[in-house]
Amino acid sequence: MDPLVAALKVAGSGLGAQSERLRVVSENLANAQSTGNTPGADPYRRKTISFAAELDRATGGSTVEIANIGNDQSAFPLEFQPGNEAADANGYVKMPNVNVLIEMADMNEANRSYEANLQVVKQARDLISMTIDLMRSQ
């Protein structure tokens, strides 16, 4: 496979992976306050995403793919809200184990990686254009 076209494919996989990561982060952020409905019920559990590199023999490039979208098994923090419908006998409500600051930092990094992948796509496309332009007269 033409290496430049392979570069496009690899960068495309990067874009896809970072988009998925952003989706997970926004889901976590949206549900940062989603508690359960019945007393003592579990709230929203934070989702995690992990990547894996895939070495493509034909292209000689390493694409990235989603290895796993899993759940964060850390404990739910407790908040004292006796009026809440999910409050247990002592008035404590289990809150989602989502830390907004961590999610925001993750979102920033995902954006940065996305931009970098986009740059690679643009450059690979430009290099292909330059090569084809060689044939163009003047």
Binding site: L4, V10, G14, S50, T59, G60, T63, V64
Partner: peptide
């Protein structure tokens, strides 16, 4: 030109895997 294309693909692989655990820069 051939060498530069291969290098471009390698760089693309590095950037795509910037958050892959255990991935070393090629």
């Amino acid at each position: 030109a051939r060498w530069l294309s291969v290098r471009q693909t390698t760089i693309a692989g590095n950037i795509a895997n910037a958050n892959t655990p255990g991935y070393r820069t090629h």
